[in-house]
Amino acid sequence: MPSAQPPRAVFAMDPVHLPLLFPPPLMDRLRQVAEIDTALVVRDLTDPAAAPALARAEVLITGWGCPRLDASALVAAPELRTVLHAAGSVRSLIGDALWDGGITVSSAVTGNALPVAEYTLAMILLAGKDALAHRERFRTTHAHPTPAETAATGNLGRRVGVIGASRVGRRLLELLRPFDFAVSLYDPYVDAAEAAALGAEPLPLEELLRRSDIVSLHAPDIPETHRMLDRTRLALIRDGGVLINTSRGALVDTRALTDELVTGRLSAVLDVTDPEPLPAGSPLYTLPNVFLTPHIAGSLGNELARLGRVVAEELERMAAGLPLAHEVLHADLARVA
């Protein structure tokens, strides 16, 4: 049943993100279903100026720059019952006290999955055309490539190995369907029937690495995946293969990958690294077979409004007495980002 009174909500994030997350049409939607001071954005839960609003808040709308929500959050906001996160992972945001207290949590991670999947698809298509090598060759020769130089180029039948059927991984598999790729998937939580429904051939990790022309990482950053692509596994990728990482840098042994890339045996598209950013002297900044970007695959600029829209929809569901569509369960954090 709809609540008799609109839920009382407070923004908690770095205020610099607010206008892009919630442009005027979305801010109007929030005001229509919730009691919220759109001029108040909390960064410090102990701020006396925010105390009256927090004391009444039933909902925190959080984002990048929000302080960690632990037991002190329940002291500042004793009426709190829901956190709507206008970003991706809540792993480092929500403390045990909130989970233990039965606070419901929702994340806009599904909204952030699309631009990451789009970026990855673009890089897969460019990698299949061997765009990095052709660009470098064109800079020096100023001539179109010869048939011999393009003999191994093309996306027809190229095998793409996707590691992780995360939200991003699933969106990528969806985007890959119209293309003439052979797609493989490694995910220990996905059986053969589900992989087939996703449009992929399930393979063990080592076999996927051996057989793929392009390997794309979409696993969560959890202890079990730390440096899952170590020196031994990187060596399994076939000569001329391409590694794409838009997940987290910690999934790859950076030193081992650098050694492979310096030899020219592999190429890489890296939107994330470990550490991030890399030291100034890293060869990954200048290697011709490396396309390195500063963590831009996720939502940026006008894409942030998609995250705000997810939150607005969740708040509307709350006001209507409906369950959250994107609830994060504490038990799931052991295997998701």
Rank of each mutant, 00 (worst) to 15 (best):
D221W: 02
D221A: 15
S267W: 11
V10I: 12
V336P: 06
P178Q: 06
L261P: 07
L270I: 08
P294F: 12
D230T: 07
R29K: 12
T146N: 04
N302Q: 11
A325P: 10
D37L: 12
A297C: 09
L176W: 08
I103D: 00
A143N: 11
G128E: 03
H142E: 14
H134K: 11
G161T: 07
S212P: 00
E316I: 03
C66S: 15
E260N: 09
P288L: 04
I244N: 05
E149H: 06
T141H: 13
L21N: 04
A131W: 08
F138P: 02
L60N: 05
P204D: 14
S282Y: 12
V42T: 10
A57E: 02
P23I: 06
R255Q: 15
D130A: 08
L198I: 00
L114G: 02
L80P: 01
S299G: 03
M27G: 11
G169C: 06
A55Y: 03
P6L: 04
E207V: 06
N112W: 01
G161E: 05
V16A: 15
F181R: 10
V168F: 12
L45E: 11
L93D: 03
I244V: 13
V336D: 05
L205C: 03
A331F: 06
Y285H: 15
G164M: 00
L198M: 03
S72G: 09
G128A: 02
L80Q: 04
L176I: 04
L278G: 08
E194N: 10
V328E: 00
D239N: 13
A73I: 04
R211K: 15
A86N: 04
T273S: 15
V41H: 13
G161L: 11
M228S: 07
P19Y: 12
F138G: 09
D253A: 14
V109D: 10
E313R: 09
P288R: 13
G154L: 08
E149I: 00
D180A: 15
I214V: 14
E58M: 06
R317K: 09
D96T: 06
E206Q: 13
V10D: 07
S89L: 02
R210L: 10
S107E: 00
A192V: 09
T286D: 15
S72L: 13
I237G: 01
P115N: 14
P24E: 09
N112T: 00
T263C: 12
A86Y: 02
N289M: 11
A148I: 01
E327Y: 04
P52G: 05
T82K: 00
V190K: 06
V160M: 10
G199S: 06
Q32M: 11
L229E: 06
P78K: 14
L322R: 14
A312K: 11
E207I: 05
A113W: 05
A51P: 06
G169W: 10
R210P: 02
P275Q: 13
P277C: 09
T38P: 13
L132S: 08
V168G: 01
L26C: 08
D100K: 14
A127L: 07
L45D: 10
N302Y: 08
A268E: 07
V272Q: 09
D187V: 00
E201F: 03
R29M: 07
A4W: 10
R231A: 15
V83P: 00
L93H: 08
A182Q: 15
V183I: 14
S89R: 07
A34E: 02
A196S: 14
F11N: 03
E194G: 04
R137M: 11
L18T: 11
L74Y: 04
R317E: 04
V190Y: 01
